[in-house]
């Protein structure tokens, strides 16, 4: 693993263009910056030469076929994978030096504590210096439960919730952390079509209301184009940034909007499908 650090100090020229356009699209001072990221599991290189910059308050979607390393990218950003080469910073701090403290993560599965009620589960996301028993913390948790539309369910246990509701508890937990960047790993992939559409709109509401920076990983092109300010297409083996597509369409967006459909086609084409 340590050999990575030496081997990858230079970025292959092919990726430089994509990196350039990604950086150009964001402000000078990105909340999240990835430069020349290379991640390897034993003999398999999952990601190579990935560059990405996300501005404050921006909603970025990362799409790619399965196996292109998009979940790996999120795991690196969240600090769960400390072994990698390149530079990954959140708020200017390297994620390996506890910069991961600044990110919240919503996993593909809700990953709730099933012995704890909704309130307790959301409180898991409270920052370490907040006493979960204090009235202020309690108020904050209850407010978040309301934000994600689960008022009245604070005392319910995860096994009493539907899949969509459980995923919203997980979202509230991520928001409780008040992260600089909220990472979402295909959070809606297990939901049926109707519930999924509701949850997407819900996420947009929360994002607009709170102004959190969001990085959403998905394999669903429609979802990416509908939600994001910018769509980053990952591809290849090992995965790298193939292209970055801006979505300059005002919200609220129509799912059947002609421009949106055109962009969807563009993203799909750059996926090579």
């Amino acid at each position: 693993m340590s050999s990575d650090a030496d081997a990858d100090s230079t970025t292959p020229t092919g990726e430089a263009d994509a990196a350039g356009s990604a950086a150009a699209a964001s402000d000078a001072d990105p909340v999240l910056a990835v430069e020349g990221l290379r991640k390897r599991y034993d003999d398999t290189v999952a990601l190579d030469g990935v560059d990405l910059a996300v501005a404050d308050g921006e909603f970025v979607a990362v799409v790619g076929p399965s196996g292109c390393g998009k979940s790996t990218l999120l795991r690196v950003l969240s600090g769960l994978e400390p072994e990698f080469a390149g530079r990954v910073t959140v708020d200017g701090t390297d994620v390996r030096d506890g910069g991961s403290d600044a990110v919240g993560m919503v996993f593909q599965e809700p990953r709730l504590l099933d012995w704890a009620d909704v309130r307790e589960n959301v409180a898991v996301g409270l920052p370490a210096d907040v006493d979960p028993e204090s009235p202020a913390a309690r108020e904050r948790v209850d407010e978040l439960i309301e934000t994600v539309g689960l008022d009245g369910f604070a005392e319910s246990h995860p096994d009493q919730l539907s899949g969509g509701m459980a995923q919203r508890v997980s979202l509230a937990r991520g928001l409780a952390y008040d992260p600089s960047v909220l990472l979402l790993d295909e959070p809606f992939s297990a939901l049926d079509r109707l519930t999924k559409a509701d949850q997407q709109d819900h996420l947009l509401d929360v994002w607009e209301e709170r102004g959190t920076t969001v990085v959403l990983v998905t394999h669903d092109v429609e979802e990416a184009v509908y939600l994001a300010d910018r769509v980053v297409v990952l591809g290849g083996q090992p995965g790298t940034v193939e292209s970055v597509i801006d979505v300059d369409i005002d919200r609220p967006r129509e799912r059947a909007d002609a421009d949106l459909v055109a962009l969807r086609r563009e993203v799909t084409e750059s996926l090579g499908r």
């Binding site: 969240s78 769960l80 990110v103 993560m105 990953r111 504590l113 898991v124 996301g125 370490a128």
Partner: peptide, 20 residues
């Protein structure tokens, strides 16, 4: 997976033992 949740939200050693 639950241990990863504890890690992402920086519960710390003692708290993740107590709560997870």
């Amino acid at each position: 997976e639950l241990l990863e949740v504890a890690e992402v939200y920086d519960l710390g050693r003692v708290e993740s033992l107590r709560r997870v």
